[in-house]
Nucleic acid binder design. Structure first.
Lengths: 243, 243
DNA sequence: TACGAAAATTCGTGATCACAGTCTTTCAGA
DNA sequence: TCTGAAAGACTGTGATCACGAATTTTCGTA
């Protein structure tokens, strides 16, 4: 699709987000937003990097206006921050923010998981949901075996949002997405510095909880999954960002 | 029908929001955003009303560009929604959204309350926090006595955010604000249709919990306050919005 | 060499215009 | 009177420019 030859390396790496349909009828601003969103999530924007409208417009080969509105949207979603200079930057990750993000994730994602199970069970599709999640989890296991950290993160994202999306929550899901947007860069940026230890597979526990019809166990599995994942990150090296 | 004339009278009615400082050094877009934000929160935008850039620019006596960016920001915060026509509208409140908003509020606001107490207690300012909240609660009691529904809601907002702001959470507070933005219009729009019953004052319970140093009781008070308040609203008349 | 003021560049903000869709109105035909 | 197609008005999108503020560079002075 996109014929812009600049930056030909990675067009739509993490496209498997929310919209399966990839219509070309979207606005330039929307595509610019998704593009920047993916680049932020995958850590290609280092914290503290100077992000300017004209610079990005040059880089992405689009006009100033789409970039301008895409940046503003990302700021509204807290993926970027607005400095008093009126200039946007990739925010630094601090120990406080990291701890806050973990707690907020636990609060919102256990809620979303419960709602997802309730909605799926009400439709009699709990088994199908468990099957879908299990497939994603197997793909994630393969990523672990091959040591593909980026694929691992991608499948992890797919697992969580496949679960939450089952709730069809137009309120909770966007909030969770905002949290992931804030954590994403840090996850990818630290991929080298950690030897991930997979002691227990909380995803398998979650799938089993769904099959057993136990929402409480599902919520516990999700909470532990979040705490395991966040706890394995190098908290001691925070703050991470501009000096 | 709503009086759709230019409304030059109400410039900054509910300005006492979060920033005590009212510097004129802000951008036009920022002021337009706050203006529209307040009007949405106080229910002056009925659901389903057609919101156009040029119309608002005319009405607010500002250029198209500030309105354009303010609308986009409000859409990103889920205060307004973007129709497939690329046109923004005040979203209708449905029973599902209402229930979701209640659960999300409970999850996030009990978390914020706990963090606020912990932060205040760590600074040895828990007593001062309780005093501040008590003052707001007394003002709210006066609003109840005089039957001033709008003042009641305003003090209610002040109480909750005075508490959450004590946590200095740069992550959780914005999420809660987004939820209030989505509920706000509905609260004000239904002010006529309900005889509010104040059986128990959960705010006083919250203040007592802070003074007693009991975070769990504080969280329970906040949760019950939310459920009481949301439960008293006329759920049976949902969906509320465009036919 | 170090320092600081002035000049040049770059930035965000906002205005204005052109364009291509969408919606409303109008009006001709049954 | 009702239907439906064309004309007109209106809307969001995006480009381009002007302006003032902030940043960076330059260059003269200690």
């Amino acid at each position: 699709m996109a014929p812009d030859q600049t930056t030909p390396e990675d067009l739509d790496s993490v496209r498997a987000d929310q919209d399966g349909a990839d219509e070309p009828r979207t606005t330039l601003q929307e595509r610019t937003y998704r593009r920047l969103r993916d680049e932020i999530m995958t850590g290609r924007f280092r914290p503290g990097r100077s992000v300017t409208i004209r610079g990005l417009a040059d880089e992405l080969q689009v006009g100033l206006m789409p970039v301008r509105e895409a940046l503003r949207r990302l700021v509204a979603e807290h993926a970027l921050t607005l400095k008093p200079n009126r200039r946007v930057e990739v925010p630094a990750m601090t120990a406080e923010s990291f701890e806050e993000l973990t707690e907020a994730r636990v609060a919102l994602e256990t809620l979303a998981a419960r709602r997802a199970y309730a909605a799926a069970a009400a439709r009699g599709e709990a088994g199908a949901l468990a099957d879908r999640l299990e497939a994603i989890d197997l793909a994630q296991d393969r990523a672990i075996e091959t040591g593909d950290w980026e694929a691992y993160l991608k499948e992890n994202l797919a697992f969580h949002f496949a679960l939450y999306r089952a709730a069809e929550s137009r309120v909770t899901t966007p909030l969770i997405e905002s949290l992931w947007l804030q954590i994403g860069p840090f996850l990818y940026l630290t991929r080298e510095s950690l030897g991930v230890t997979y002691n227990e597979d909380r995803h398998k526990e979650a799938v089993a909880a769904i099959r057993a019809g136990d929402p409480d166990a599902l919520a516990r599995a999700i909470e532990q999954d979040i705490r395991d994942g966040m706890g394995s990150l190098p908290r001691n090296r925070l703050p991470f960002g501009p000096a």
